[in-house]
Design a protein around this nucleic acid. Structure first.
Lengths: 279, 279
DNA sequence: AAAATAGTGTCTCTCAGACAATATGTC
DNA sequence: GACATATTGTCTGAGAGACACTATTTT
């Protein structure tokens, strides 16, 4: 049987020097725009460049704990309740010029939050619209599908990028990591109720639809979406209340819901317009 | 606010000593049974216990490359064409008694292959039925749902576990990793054509159905499955040939197919009998 | 009053699953 | 010949998407 001889002499130094970090792709929706939390690096390498919050995993610290710690450390404030899951691990040699670094990326969904504050090791921190990052197409996410009529607040506030003067080139392979995180998020909205994590504790069906439309960058039929959401068991549950007023531009008051207890959506809400066939 | 106790100038040696390993969950189907490739450890810790093939990532070695190297090293032969993808990363402090070890687990799908050979650091290597591992329920995977009528070769060869005299207790947290891998595999069969990776280059629809039935541990309706598979664009394509003979117990010759060029199945083949609702 | 939005009803088409039927093999 | 399997056909019900319609509220 297995012997757990801890007494075995073991010398870590015979193994290659590597470091393990965590990086966190935190997504939220601000003013109808999907944004990711970035920090401006205050130390080399890539000093001054924008990057995902992250850093070295400490001894005796679990990976999710490290992710949460880095998030609060580098943005100067607790981000409240959020969904956090592991995304993937990136370890291509040379991805960090200092040494071999294996980065365990995480994905977080957060409701709309106030502007972050630069913390340790960060010169600045900001919510940056993912559309401004020029991500490679994950689904149909062209850099900025401008003509397609982006939902909500057209002509709203200028991209935060401009306020921060950030470059579109992110540090390390973080552009790729964000693209992967966005792909995962889009997929997860289909078969989990995680869209509710982008909303506050109570929300209307229209607000929920706006979340889907923003993340999927697509228009959804209001009526069908409404009926569909209510038909999936455990997706949302009624609070019994309604909003105080109608929408900005008219319309009746909407009923308020909170997240239900389902962990998976049955049946799923499938994305529309998947490209048909291949060569 | 953030404390600046860690704004240390960079020096790799000040960061915790960690090692990074890869582990590989390789699944195949032998005699109608879903099996995972395990090796018997020849070195402490857990010497003599069965574990996933894996080991330390070398300098300047990419993660997938390390996974493939460990696979061939520890099983003494190249496993030919197989599908390999990253599964998840496990890093709970204490999961390895030696030191802090972060393990990047991978998942591989292989067609039926000959018995493996023990290689470096391994006393033995074998295909082990996952049903014998007492995995926690991932979907409806009770340790061994004996009464449910397991497809194919009932009363076939005894489990390899008995031949090898292996314990059901795997080393480290490998039971959990295998459970996660199995869950991923079950899910991937729904929306990707990866089931074909368990088959040879040419296969019949019945053989494909047997793969689904084995991985999902469920019975599928032959007629409906047949029509469904052929209706999904790019899932399979006809070779124009048929088998040389009918089945063991009769029946006409079956047409042979090869894997198509689709990377996703539209529409997906959903698992039957998902448990309805929750409390 | 005009316009926008919430919520419901209806129709059609696709698809999953149950069941049946026929042809073609093996033992 | 008895029986198993491959393949196709038919029917039913669930669900997605297109459209239409009513009620309610804001400007």
């Amino acid at each position: 049987m297995a012997d757990d001889r801890f007494s075995v002499p073991y010398d870590p130094r015979v193994y290659p020097a590597v470091a393990v970090t965590v990086d966190v792709v935190t997504l939220t929706i601000r003013d109808g725009t999907l944004c990711v939390l970035l920090v401006q690096r205050g130390t080399p390498p890539h000093e001054g460049a924008w990057a995902l919050p992250g850093g070295f995993v400490r001894e005796d610290e679990d990976l999710p704990a490290a992710a949460i710690r880095e998030l609060t450390e580098e943005t100067g404030r607790a981000l409240g309740r959020l969904h956090l899951e592991q995304l993937a691990t990136y370890g291509v040699p040379g991805r960090d010029p200092r040494m071999r670094i294996i980065s365990v990326a995480h994905l977080a969904f957060a409701p709309d939050l106030p502007d972050p504050i630069a913390g340790t090791d960060a010169m600045d921190a900001a919510w940056v619209p993912v559309a401004s990052l020029g991500l490679p197409n994950t689904t149909s996410a062209a850099p900025v599908p401008a003509g397609t009529a982006v939902p909500v607040s057209a002509g709203g506030p200028a991209p935060l990028l401009q306020r921060s003067g950030a470059s579109h080139r992110l540090a390390f392979d973080h552009t790729r990591i964000i693209a992967d995180g966005l792909g995962r998020a889009r997929s997860k909205l289909e078969y989990t109720p995680l869209a509710t994590r982008f909303a506050g504790p109570e929300f209307t069906i229209s607000e929920l639809r706006a979340i889907y439309e923003t993340v999927w960058d697509d228009r959804l039929h209001p009526g069908n979406f409404h009926r569909k959401v209510l038909s999936v068991p455990g997706f949302v549950e009624s609070t019994g209340y309604t909003t105080d007023r109608g929408g900005h531009r008219g319309g009746p008051r909407a009923r308020l819901y909170r997240a239900g207890n389902a962990r998976l959506l049955h049946p799923a809400l499938l994305r529309p317009n998947r490209e048909e066939s291949g060569p």
